[in-house]
Design a binder for these strands. Structure first.
Length: 722
DNA sequence: AGCACGCCGACT
DNA sequence: GTCGGCGTGCTC
């Protein structure tokens, strides 16, 4: 018996598996997905590894193989399905095997805090000196695998393991069962024809047992959630489990509640902010099959759901599904890989589908289900205000005359207002008027934002310094703040409407736990008339008396140097507009310097189709997705020279490997934000015509890049190239 | 990660 | 000549 083992998956430096001989006494314990201790390298040091495959004697020269000397886990910590998924992820994102496996290994397993070490027999064994002391201690009472004692005596404990005296096992769990609430309520408002059709498509795909993408394109309030719930019910009744992905757990409490109440099974939530014990419980419930539904953000796609039958991705266009840090996976793509492995359907739900997904839906690659009619709701009226014109006509304020008069009306009627600006702080730029000096972050090539607290802050690395009002370069007192963030909006609104009660919700006011919920509840109880905020107020909120939404500056996203900027603008405007008048008639005012831009015009008319038609033309002309597959090769180092040398290496490799592929190379060049957290960044953007060629070239470069002074990050299908 | 191997300059 | 610098590559 031979076990294929991935070594050191935590530090991810070894990018292949190794064959080990399984000694006879371990044959029964060895299983794919369990961790083992093995000797590794010339010095034979003891390392942890994960069994990814078990095979019978083949042609391998067994004399060359080392032997596994102990099996750590009683039950596999990773399923064979999850290992397959890790291999797919490694191939697609050109990751090292260890990096990919780390994604499917539950975090608490790495922490080892649910494991304990105990003695195998209850007899005192004949041992010498310190070993005896340690053994006696463990015999008396099992120790936590993560304890200080275990760490301090690692070597000796391992040698006790080698003697076969200790075992490694799951700690008995404290009973933390949450009460099963039996609040099963049936839907009132029955399914509409459109909903029924969508449900049938999902059921059929599930019954057929094939991998298929189903795009559920439904406007806000068209009842997507109801379709999800009915589809989940169907799948659960057939004994299979479901993963429901949501962009952000804190903003979807209503959905979680209704799923919990409506489904006759244990539903677990799976995300990084849970306590370690909560996560262990969720993990065990899924692993045992007790829980058939898991809800969570990006990381939930790796949950150990047993016999997976369906994956649903709600708000599939949300950027939070794409990881911004390496490994830069996209949970939607991972969902598709996992569905493919299991031969099951994926439902992608959105009111503003990602351009690629809609393109594939109308070209027949995906199935398309459309929900057009809104349940008990009307669309808000949208006004686009040309801020150039406002300026020409003498209005120098941040607010247009229309917005001010509409706010006034709302305050008089006692109805609420939402003001949206995609920028926190007071002013994003501070400039000396005498010498032109711009305050920059010491660690990043980013201008510092002035905050009302009297500090200048970097929104990339959180560096902050006290604001003195005196130019550090020339000593002048004529330093001025330019542009506005949410803090300034709040201040200026107070000047116009002295009696209005205002709440602000952005990253700065929501650092405390539960702060988001608190602010939203206060607004819901009508303790404030106006809510000012960033992105986070755009999603899923529902306030009956909110009838006016103001977008202070629609251009902040539009002007980003990114091919998705128009799509993001359309999505965000549509989303934030959807907050107005969900029960009463609502109004939306969009302030912009580009009133004719198609993304803004289409959003104001609630017209996805016309936005898509314009956007897809542009994508085709410029050779962007879905007409190309993009990889961003980024090389990063604290030392500018090293980063430069690294990217030159990548360029040489690219020239060599992309010869036979249909590829266009852009760069190398400095990344748009050259320095972040004291790391210099160079990048090369490559467009491929064929996905397979992209994967092939990216993997070859990963294998051949060996310049240790600068790290190479390969971003497949990037969402931002800053 | 470690460790060995090997190709080059420095130097008893 | 050979000692050791570190760049490169391997570890079942």
């Amino acid at each position: 018996m031979i076990a294929e083992v991935c070594i050191n998956y935590q530090d991810a430096n070894v990018d292949k598996t190794f064959d080990y001989l399984v000694p006879e006494h371990l044959e029964e314990l060895v299983e794919v997905g369990k961790r083992v201790y093995v000797n590794f390298g010339v010095s034979n040091r003891v390392v942890e590894g994960l069994i990814v495959n078990v095979k019978e004697d083949t042609n391998i020269e067994k004399e060359k193989l080392k032997r596994i000397f102990s099996v750590i886990d009683k039950i596999p910590v990773v399923s064979e399905e999850q290992i397959k998924l890790a291999f797919s992820i490694r191939d697609y994102y050109a990751l090292k095997l260890g990096q990919a496996l780390e994604l499917v290994i539950p975090p608490f397993i790495s922490n080892k805090d649910i494991y304990q070490i105990s003695a195998k027999t209850d007899q005192e064994i004949d041992l010498e000196g310190e070993l005896k002391e340690i053994y006696k201690k463990i015999l008396k009472r099992p120790i936590s695998a993560n304890s200080k004692f275990a760490k301090e005596n690692k070597e000796k404990i391992i040698s006790l393991f080698l003697k076969g005296l200790l075992k490694y096992e799951l700690k008995p769990l404290k009973s933390l069962e949450d009460k099963k609430e039996n609040m099963l309520t049936e839907p009132q408002y029955g399914l509409t024809d459109e909903q029924n059709r969508a449900l049938d498509v999902i059921k059929t795909a599930f019954d057929e047992g094939v991998y298929k993408n189903i795009l559920l394109f439904g406007v806000t309030g068209s009842g997507k959630t109801e379709v999800y719930i009915q589809a989940m019910k169907y799948v659960i009744e057939k004994g299979k489990s479901v993963i429901l992905m949501v962009p952000e757990i804190s903003l979807t409490p209503q959905m979680i509640e209704s799923v919990k109440n409506r489904l006759n099974t244990t539903v677990v939530v799976y995300h990084s902010k849970m306590s370690s014990l909560q996560r262990q419980m969720a993990w065990l419930k899924l692993k045992s099959g007790e829980a058939k539904v898991v809800i969570g953000p990006r990381s939930a796609i790796f949950a150990p759901a047993k016999e997976l039958g369906l994956i649903i991705v709600d708000e599939e266009h949300e950027p939070s599904y794409k990881a911004e840090k390496s490994p830069r996976i996209n949970a939607v793509e991972v969902a598709q890989m996992r569905a493919k492995i299991n031969n099951i359907p994926v439902v992608l739900g959105s009111a503003t589908p990602m351009v690629e997904h809609y393109y594939w839906a109308i070209s027949g690659k995906y199935l398309l289900c459309t929900l057009k009619s809104r349940v008990n709701m009307t669309m808000p009226e949208v006004f686009v205000v040309d801020m150039k014109k406002e300026l020409l006509e003498g209005n120098k304020s941040i607010f247009s005359r229309l917005l001010l008069s509409e706010i006034e009306k709302n305050l008089q009627k006692g109805e609420q207002v939402l003001l949206f600006l995609n920028r926190r702080g007071y002013s994003p730029v501070v400039i000396c008027r005498e010498c032109g000096y711009v305050y920059m972050c010491k660690n990043c090539s980013i201008s510092l934002t002035y905050h009302k607290s009297g500090y200048l802050k970097c929104h990339y690395c959180n560096y902050k310094e006290k604001y003195t009002g005196i130019c550090p370069k020339c000593g002048s007192k004529y330093v001025r703040q330019y542009g506005s963030g949410t803090q300034r909006i709040e201040d200026e609104i107070k000047m116009y409407f002295k009696d209005a009660k205002i709440l602000r919700m952005d990253k700065d006011t929501t650092t405390r736990k539960d702060a988001i919920e608190e602010i939203l509840n206060r607004f819901k109880r009508k303790e404030a008339d106006i809510l000012v905020g960033t992105q986070m107020i755009a999603k899923g909120l529902h306030f009956p008396d909110l009838t006016l939404v103001g977008v202070i500056n629609a251009d902040t996203i539009l002007n980003m140097p990114d091919f998705r900027s128009k799509e993001r603008t359309f999505q965000l405007l549509t989303q934030v507009a959807g907050r107005a008048g969900r029960e009463k008639q609502g109004r939306v005012i969009i302030q912009t310097f580009n009133p004719d831009d198609y993304s803004i015009v289409a959003a104001s008319k609630h017209d996805y189709e016309s936005f898509f038609r314009e956007e897809i033309k542009l994508r085709k002309a410029m050779g962007y997705p879905p007409y190309a597959y993009i990889v961003n090769f980024v090389v990063v180092s604290q030392n500018e020279k090293y980063a430069q040398r690294g990217i030159e290496n990548v360029y040489r490799l690219l020239e060599e490997y992309s010869k036979t592929a249909d590829a266009k190379i852009y760069g190398p060049s400095e990344s748009p934000i050259f320095k972040v957290e004291n790391q210099y960044r160079y990048h090369i953007l490559v467009k491929f015509k064929k996905a397979l060629q992209m994967i092939d070239v990216a993997n070859k470069i990963k294998e051949r890049y060996n310049y240790n002074n600068a790290e190479l990050i390969i971003d497949v299908n990037p969402w931002n190239t800053l």
